[in-house]
């Protein structure tokens, strides 16, 4: 059984229970179950950030199961692929569906301080030579949305004279020379043959040296699991021929994913047909996320 199957199963449980209890008509007994089911079925933003639990996300038991008995993928050979991602910042509209999808897909902690991917908003006001930058984690955006789990930018510039504005999606760059792998004292985080940098959460000691070493701020620390966290390009999906969740949900095609070994893959075409850049090239990490339309202000 794959992680997805397990998740689907977990989703189904409260729904079927609702029907069952509804039939029985035991109002008092089913109240809790209905609340749970409604939570699962309603908008994702209704999740409770405080508990870090969400009906779509893995619970601790499912997580333990997935870690201790990872799904086997017999037909996948990591020597055959070289995954890469492209981000076209000129297409991004800052809808943050990628953030939401990522949090759901990967059971990322729901608060604003733990993200595997996020989107930055850059705004040049008229006459200014520098950009104002914020992300969804900005307290003003959260206050405006009313919750950390409603992924929205506020409308703070509606009365300002904006000269130029754009969004830049960020995620782990799955670097060729990853600083995080270099500093990991146990080897719990490692570079896979097909590109993504992965974490063995059963071996990580939680020293957070990798969190310090990442130049892109892509790593965070999961306090409840006591281990490091980061984007792995939805490794469980890409090894089955699917796109990462953020790519899948992007409504504008701002995110492009594929295999560089395949010259006709979306990412190979993206790199070939555009002048691409990477973030912080001076760090020497050689990122594998390629950007189009970066600006001097992008951090």
């Amino acid at each position: 059984m794959t992680i997805q199957d397990k998740k689907l199963e977990a989703q189904e449980v409260p729904l079927s229970r609702r029907r069952f209890l509804g039939l029985l008509g035991k109002g008092a007994a089913c109240a809790g179950a209905i609340v749970g089911a409604v939570g699962a079925g309603s908008a994702l933003g209704a999740a409770e950030a405080g508990s870090g639990k969400h009906a779509y996300q893995q619970n601790d038991k499912q997580y333990a199961e997935a870690v201790n008995d990872p799904p086997k993928i017999p037909e996948y050979n990591w020597n055959d692929h070289q995954w890469a991602m492209g981000v076209d910042t000129t297409r991004c509209i800052g809808c943050l569906r990628c953030m939401e999808a990522c949090k759901m897909e990967n059971s990322v902690q729901m608060d604003a301080n733990h993200n595997r991917t996020w989107v930055e908003r850059y705004v040049y006001l008229e006459g200014s030579n520098t950009a104002l930058i914020d992300s969804q984690a900005d307290p003003k955006n959260i206050a405006n949305a009313g919750s950390e789990t409603k992924f929205r930018f506020d409308n703070r510039y509606k009365d300002a004279k904006v000269e130029k504005a754009f969004f830049v999606a960020k995620l782990c760059n799955q670097c060729e020379h990853p600083s995080c792998v270099e500093v990991c004292p146990t080897g719990a985080t490692f570079k896979s043959k097909d590109g993504p940098v992965l974490i063995d959460t059963t071996y990580c000691i939680g020293c957070q040296y990798c969190v310090q070493a990442c130049p892109y701020g892509a790593r965070s620390f999961n306090e409840s699991r006591g281990t490091a966290e980061k984007c792995n390009w939805c490794y469980h999906r890409i090894t089955k021929g699917l796109n990462p969740a953020c790519v899948e949900v992007c409504p504008t095609g701002s995110r492009v994913f594929g295999d560089r070994n395949d010259p006709e893959s979306p990412v190979s075409l993206f790199i070939r047909n555009n002048h691409v850049q990477v973030l912080k090239p001076e760090m020497g990490n050689a990122p594998n996320v390629f950007y189009v339309g970066l600006d001097k202000e992008v951090v």
């Binding site: 270099e182 990991c184 004292p185 990580c204 020293c207």
Partner: peptide, 20 residues
């Protein structure tokens, strides 16, 4: 450490590129 019981992992299987 987030996982203090695993502290000796760094001694048993040191990853030598790490300063730590």
């Amino acid at each position: 450490l987030g996982q203090p019981t695993r502290a000796f992992n760094a001694v048993i299987t040191p990853h030598w590129t790490s300063a730590m």
